[in-house]
Design a protein around this nucleic acid. Structure first.
Lengths: 286, 286
DNA sequence: TCTTCTTACGCTCGGCGTAAGTATC
DNA sequence: GATACTTACGCCGAGCGTAAGAAGA
């Protein structure tokens, strides 16, 4: 299971074509054919049907494994090189849309910072592969409970902030006058599913334990303003950290009182911090 | 980063010797030397000091990555082969010491079953690499909260049982007459650390949020009886599922009432179940 | 001086490209 | 018959072993 062969395989599967994959990878189409044949021989099972080119059941399984594997391989290489290389001058941050606020924002150095806003699930990979020095991720969890992040590599996480969670309702919503809301009362409400910008419904479903939280509208991307616009227009509910939910026009923020949940922000980094990243983390801790 | 080179590297690091690693791997010592040189060139950094042979900082990082990487590689290969191969006749279970009870035990087929009792952390790897068809893992968690298992490969987990958690005290302990105990009152107690046999202190620490739970005595292995003997002798406290804690001689089991925690048992398997494993899971679900 | 890793060198085999073959649409 | 994957074959380089070299204990 040479990583090269694996990479060829995922490319072929993605493009559903040997010749297109060959072109993308800079091989001849013959070489790609030989790669796939070698993999199939090694694993003792056909991985692709030809004409049309599509993964077999065994191939589907391999595809599920291949992504994380190649990612981890990249992460390992990046981590080792970074450990050995001289610390860089700049500071690259990868953050979720609602994670960079408060102390973290205040303590950011004033020069040499680059910030990338990404969806929650992409942050660990970004940090692991060295595309970012530090990640800031947020989400809802039980108090003092760490967030559940995809583990693409051995990363260190540390909670840096917790605050109450508000439910965002359109102004005039029947529940908008309540002083507190229980998640159980909202299981069957219309919800906005915006895993990139807001809190994934999955996390609410997990916190409540079980089903419900059907998505009325799906919103991709990392723009919180759009999410709030949709909430104000009554397309569904969403949750936000209390300090952020307060000043969204056209909406009312009501504290979520049960189950006991907090909006938690975590810092994600590799064990080996140096340069500006190290100073920023030290400042945050001190 | 050829996996072969990686495997050679971890072997050399483990044995702290090129020649010993060569012998173990069936290479000449020259080949091992070339492997390490190739890796170091590829990664652009020295990984080992020679004489004595020990990992450099960069090498330490690589070691952290290498284990999970090679494990995932094994898991991928096993998964693909299993998907393609004919379903096997027997049923291999990998279980933690206190996970195989109740319905799961009752519904087990009467022939062709092999059970291996392992520490919690080893079960996912066992299932992922195909050494077991199914895993049963237990631990404490918030109600309806999934257990946090090391993710070595894309595995499917499903909760199959939850029950109250008891604290096991030696008979005559000052707190033994209480009707319920709060975890917060026990932070500074003497605890038994038996990650293989019982609930890891780490999980209690996480549930309580913060420090404490110092280990008075460490007990390795997967034998619950020994753990209870130690508890009865007053070497420290431990927690167990209520149904199990009740009948341990020389001890008193007191329900843990806060924070709200449950002893949860989960089924771990790959997506592709067949043969006896599939029937067993279906029986458990139905 | 002995042990242990490194380097030199030659051989073999793996892997790529060219080109011919074959199967499907 | 055109398109797209497979197979044949030759070439080059990667990787292994043998053996000589170097460096530390």
């Amino acid at each position: 299971m040479d990583p090269h062969l694996l990479r060829t395989y995922v490319t072929v599967a993605r493009l559903a074509s040997f010749s297109a994959a060959a072109q993308e990878l800079g091989y001849t189409q013959s070489a790609v054919s030989q790669h796939i044949a070698a993999l199939e021989q090694d694993l003792g099972a056909p991985l692709l049907t030809r004409r049309p080119v599509a993964p077999t059941p065994a191939g589907e399984r391999l595809l599920e494994h291949a992504g994380p594997l190649l990612l981890r391989l990249d992460a390992a290489r990046a981590d080792v090189r970074r450990t050995a290389a001289a610390p860089e001058a700049g500071l690259h941050l990868a953050v979720t849309p609602t994670a960079l606020r408060g102390r973290a924002a205040a303590l950011l150095p004033h020069t040499g910072v680059r910030v990338r806003v990404l969806a929650r699930a992409e942050i660990p990979a970004e940090v692991a592969t060295g595309a970012a020095d530090l990640g800031l991720v947020d989400g809802v969890a039980a108090p003092n409970d760490p967030l559940r992040l995809p583990d693409v590599a051995p990363l260190t996480t540390r909670g840096i902030a917790e605050e109450p969670v508000d439910v965002v309702l359109p102004a005039g919503h029947p529940l908008a006058s309540r002083s507190g809301l229980r998640l159980g009362d909202l299981v069957d409400a219309r919800w906005l599913d915006a895993p990139g910008a807001g809190v994934p419904l999955e996390q609410l479903r997990a916190a409540h334990g079980g089903g419900g939280f059907g998505a009325a509208l799906r919103c991709d991307g990392t723009d919180v303003r759009t999410l709030l616009t949709l909430a104000a227009a009554g397309h569904g509910l969403t949750v936000l950290p209390a300090s952020l939910a307060a000043d969204a026009p056209g909406t009312v923020a009501v504290p979520l009182v049960a189950p006991r949940l907090v909006h938690r922000t975590e810092l994600v980094h590799t064990g080996t911090l140096r340069g500006p990243a190290e100073r920023f983390v030290a400042a945050l801790a001190g």
